[in-house]
Amino acid sequence: MPDGLNEAPSLEEACAVVSGTPARIRVLRVVMDSTEVTANEVMASTGLSRNAAGHHLSALLEAGAIRQRRTTHSRGAGSVIYWSADVDVIHAIRDTLSSHLT
C-alpha cells in the first residue's frame, strides 16, 4: 500500500484492504470510530471471535490501513496491542474505490 497520500492505491490494493467482506468493513469502522482499540473491543463491537478479529486486524495492518502499538498490560500480565486507523490511507482507498464506481 502506498505511504500516506504520496500515491493513490491501485484498485487491486484498495480491494485487498476491504476484501469484499462485511466483517472487514465492520472491523475497520470500529477502529476508525476510536482513537485506539484493543482486539477485545473489536470482538465486543462486532461479535467476531478472537481468531476472526485477529485475522481482519492483521490484514488491515498489512494493507497499511491501521497501525498497532504494543505496550505492557497495566497489571503486568503480558502485552496489549492497541489498534488505530491511518485515516489518510483509508481515505485514499475510499477515493480509489469511488473513482471506479462513478
Rank of each mutant, 00 (worst) to 15 (best):
P2D: 05
G4V: 14
G4P: 04
L5M: 09
L5Y: 12
L5D: 14
N6T: 15
N6I: 14
N6D: 15
A8H: 06
A8D: 15
A8P: 13
P9E: 07
P9N: 04
P9R: 07
L11I: 09
E12D: 14
E12L: 12
A14Q: 06
A14S: 14
V17L: 15
V17H: 09
V18G: 14
P22Q: 01
A23D: 14
I25R: 06
R26D: 12
R26V: 05
R26Q: 13
R26P: 02
L28I: 00
R29F: 06
R29C: 06
V30A: 04
V30S: 01
V30Y: 05
M32K: 14
D33Q: 09
S34F: 07
S34M: 08
E36P: 00
A39G: 11
N40G: 15
N40F: 08
E41V: 01
E41S: 13
E41Y: 00
V42T: 02
M43E: 15
M43D: 05
M43W: 12
M43N: 10
A44Y: 07
T46F: 09
T46A: 02
T46R: 13
L48P: 10
L48E: 12
L48Q: 08
L48A: 10
S49T: 15
N51W: 04
A52G: 01
A52N: 02
A52K: 03
A53G: 05
A53I: 07
G54Q: 09
L57N: 03
L57M: 07
L57K: 05
S58E: 08
S58H: 06
S58I: 03
L61A: 02
E62C: 07
A63H: 00
A63I: 05
G64D: 03
A65P: 10
I66E: 04
I66F: 03
I66T: 04
R67S: 14
R67C: 13
T71H: 08
R75E: 12
G76F: 01
S79W: 06
V80K: 01
Y82Q: 04
W83D: 04
V87Y: 01
D88G: 07
D88A: 09
V89G: 01
V89Y: 00
V89N: 00
I93A: 00
D95C: 03
L97F: 03
L97Q: 08
S99W: 06
S99K: 11
L101H: 07
L101Q: 07
